[in-house]
Nucleic acid binder design. Structure first.
Length: 123
DNA sequence: CTTCTGACA
DNA sequence: TGTCAGTA
């Protein structure tokens, strides 16, 4: 199951194939890359190589754009999704435990009042 | 022949 | 965006 996802992320498709698969022009695909909406890999000779996930991304992009979304809006959507993968949201209890630990470790140095404001900056 | 970057109507 | 030029 994990092996399959790995293959979907394998960059092996040249732009010509992606054009046929998405119905987009090379110009558009390159433009979307410039806008950070897709991040294809490169061969030693600078040729773009797309993965199946990249193709899905472009197909999805076509829908979002058709629905009137802005390049900037779509970019933010993907950026926030990427951030959440690296920094998964904490459950309420996890947050409380973490906050409690921060409070304990910082209060010893600066006292409770400022300890609260300092630890809150961490979230 | 295919792709790449930069540029211009 | 399309398209043309000059490359790799």
């Amino acid at each position: 199951m994990a092996e399959k996802q790995l293959r979907r992320n394998l960059a092996v498709l040249p732009i010509g194939t992606v054009m046929k698969l998405t119905g987009q022009t090379a110009r558009q695909i390159r433009y979307y890359e410039a806008q950070q909406l897709v991040l294809p890999e490169r061969t030693a000779g600078h040729q773009r190589l797309f993965s199946l996930n990249d193709v899905d991304r472009l197909l999805e992009l076509k829908d979002y754009l058709a629905e009137g979304a802005t390049i900037a809006q779509i970019r933010q959507i993907y950026q926030k999704q990427a951030q959440k993968r690296q920094q998964p949201e904490l459950s309420d209890t996890q947050t409380r435990q973490l906050l409690a630990q921060e409070l304990l470790s910082v209060s010893g140095l600066v006292g409770q009042r400022s300890a609260i404001s300092q630890s809150s900056k961490l979230y």
